[in-house]
Amino acid sequence: MNVLKAIPPIQLHPVLLFFFLAAYLTGAFTEFAVMLLIVCIHELGHVLMALYFRWRIEKIMIWIFGGVMKTAEHGSRPISEEALVVIAGPFQHVLIFACLILFGNYIPDPFLSTLHNANMMILLFNMLPVWPLDGGKLLSLVLASILPCRKAHTFTIILSVFLGLVLLSIQLIYFSFQLTSICLVLFLLMENRTEWKQRYYAFIRFLLKRPVMQIERVTETRSGHDERLLIILSKIRRNRRHIFIFKEKNNEQRVHESELLKAYFSSGSHDKTIGQILARRN
């Protein structure tokens, strides 16, 4: 694979302009440039690992403390594979620290200190369990391994917003006013607000990709005849294939998830109960 052809044009987030102006006006342009360089190295880790697994990368967006790599594979690959793509970004900081130790004697002390502090700051910031940071993505993957996909996604956003509000409160109460820190937290809260508004569409996208997912583990899930089809599909977990068992009196029916997905996306079935769908099936 030609790596250069596989990487789409890199876009700069509009918020980056704000930090560029702030760095210029405060005389901190060197620190800004160093942080931007480290962010690009960080994002390169995600990209290379994604390309290794042959992910289709749609867009790379860079902002001051991180970046966002949009792919067509989100939610459709194994959790372990997606975790490796996420971890590949923070791992770049370990390599940067190793380089600073090996070649630190050749770097002027003030600049070496700037590199070290920026690298540590970006690493710690990205590991916060707040969506869409790497820590938030790892939190989402952990929840997805033990909870249904839709519930894991919802809990991730709720926990991210809660922690974001805690960070904002701590900043306002215990630390001196820093516009940069407050803007970062507000930016994360806005990202989670957008993710919350799009959570239903994210779930439908997940359901559409289910047929092509390579999943070996099968589990049986019991549901009632009076439950609506969407509620039943909301019990699907990323790392399992589901066989749903519906029991009414002495009659028990087993239905593979693929049949329910087909019924959901067919016209006139998405708002019906499973009892109605099974009755029509029989």
Rank of each mutant, 00 (worst) to 15 (best):
L17C: 07
C99H: 08
D134R: 01
I60C: 08
G27E: 14
L115E: 00
I204C: 12
L188M: 11
E81H: 12
P108M: 03
Q198L: 11
N126R: 01
I236G: 00
D134G: 06
I170D: 07
D134L: 02
S80P: 03
Q178M: 10
H46T: 01
R77L: 01
N119Y: 01
L229R: 04
R193W: 15
K247S: 15
A144H: 02
H256L: 00
N251H: 14
I158Q: 10
H13T: 07
P211E: 08
A88P: 03
N126D: 00
A6R: 15
F18W: 13
I64V: 13
N2K: 09
H13F: 08
S267I: 05
H42Q: 05
R228E: 09
T30N: 10
Q276F: 07
L48M: 12
W196E: 05
L95P: 00
A50P: 02
L159V: 00
H13C: 08
A88D: 03
Q214P: 01
E248T: 12
L163R: 03
I101H: 10
Q253M: 07
Y174G: 06
L44K: 11
N282E: 11
K137H: 08
P78I: 10
T156D: 02
L189I: 06
A98M: 08
M127L: 11
I204A: 12
G66A: 03
A83P: 07
A72C: 10
V142G: 07
V68K: 09
L128P: 01
R240N: 10
M49S: 10
K272C: 13
L208G: 07
M213I: 11
E81W: 04
R210S: 07
K5N: 08
L167E: 02
L172M: 15
H242D: 05
T156M: 01
E43S: 04
S76M: 07
N117Q: 15
R217S: 12
L165H: 08
M213L: 08
I232D: 05
L16E: 12
R238K: 10
A118K: 03
I158H: 13
W131R: 01
A144N: 11
F103T: 06
C149N: 11
V218N: 11
